[in-house]
């Protein structure tokens, strides 16, 4: 089960080009980072099949159910009321509201009158709470969420209900455990910083490692993964 970016070249109005060649393969969490404007959203759209590449192709093997969470959650809304929106995903209302932290009679609120953060929570709870997708692509899933909600989303992602999860983000504070780290370098090339062996991939992750990871690496620690707790544990091991 994989998504293969086969010699992919993406261009946006001739302004820039992004080259990607690699396989988002095997089960696990793929983290794609890169500076703002580097083409993360375009690559996410291309992998989801809604953006036509300038050249190359996307090969999907064993992936028949795929979904993309767009950066702006309002694009996905089809239900007038919150309860209608949840039902449009064929999910139970009460449980989904609980998972998204939106209890308290908000099922009868008009969906588009929720704040951007609340809407994002609702959308992610619906998408990630759906029957398993073969691959789920999340474009900036942490945007507009506070730390508590980011941790809640990370915990859901780490449950790995969906075999392949690809996260596009420039989040620097709260991240889920990842299996593969990808990075879009300045100049527009997607590079795999290492798969299945995050401890070795982390020092090679140049552009966007969170501050806590940089500090841990500077002190000589070797975190097992990219979460804050991994950095803390690595430092504890070192000083033990």
């Amino acid at each position: 089960m994989h998504l293969n970016a086969d010699k992919l070249s993406l261009s946006h109005g001739g302004e820039w080009t992004l080259s990607a060649n690699g396989i988002f393969g095997g089960e696990g969490v793929h983290l794609v980072t890169g500076p703002v404007g580097s083409g993360k959203t375009t690559l996410a759209s291309a992998l989801a099949g809604i953006f036509e590449p300038a050249s190359g192709r996307i090969v999907r093997e064993g992936v028949s159910r795929l979904s993309l969470s767009m950066q702006f959650p309002e694009y996905h809304v089809t239900g007038f009321l919150v309860k209608d929106e949840i039902r449009s995903w064929h999910l139970p209302v009460t449980e989904t509201l609980r998972k998204s932290g939106l209890e308290g009679g908000r099922q009868d609120r008009k969906t588009l009158t929720l704040s951007r953060g609340e809407l994002k929570r609702l959308h992610l709870a619906c998408l990630l709470g759906s029957p398993p997708w073969d691959a789920v692509i999340l474009d900036e899933p942490f945007a507009g969420l506070d730390c508590k909600e980011k941790r809640r989303v990370c915990a859901t992602i780490e449950e790995k209900r969906h075999p392949v999860t690809i996260i596009f983000t420039h989040e620097q504070a709260v991240l889920p455990a990842a299996d593969v780290i990808w990075e879009i370098e300045v100049g527009g090339t997607l590079i795999c910083r290492g798969g299945r062996v995050p401890p070795e991939a982390i020092p090679a992750w140049k552009g966007a490692p969170p501050r806590y990871l940089t500090r841990a690496l500077e002190e000589g620690a070797r975190p097992e993964n990219i979460r804050l707790q991994d950095a803390k544990e690595a430092l504890c091991r070192m000083h033990a």
Binding site: I50, L68, Y75, H76, T78, W89
Partner: peptide
């Protein structure tokens, strides 16, 4: 752009 994105989102949903 909004129309394009909403239509894509609805297609995916």
């Amino acid at each position: 752009k909004d129309v394009r994105d909403i239509r894509n989102a609805l297609k995916l949903k």
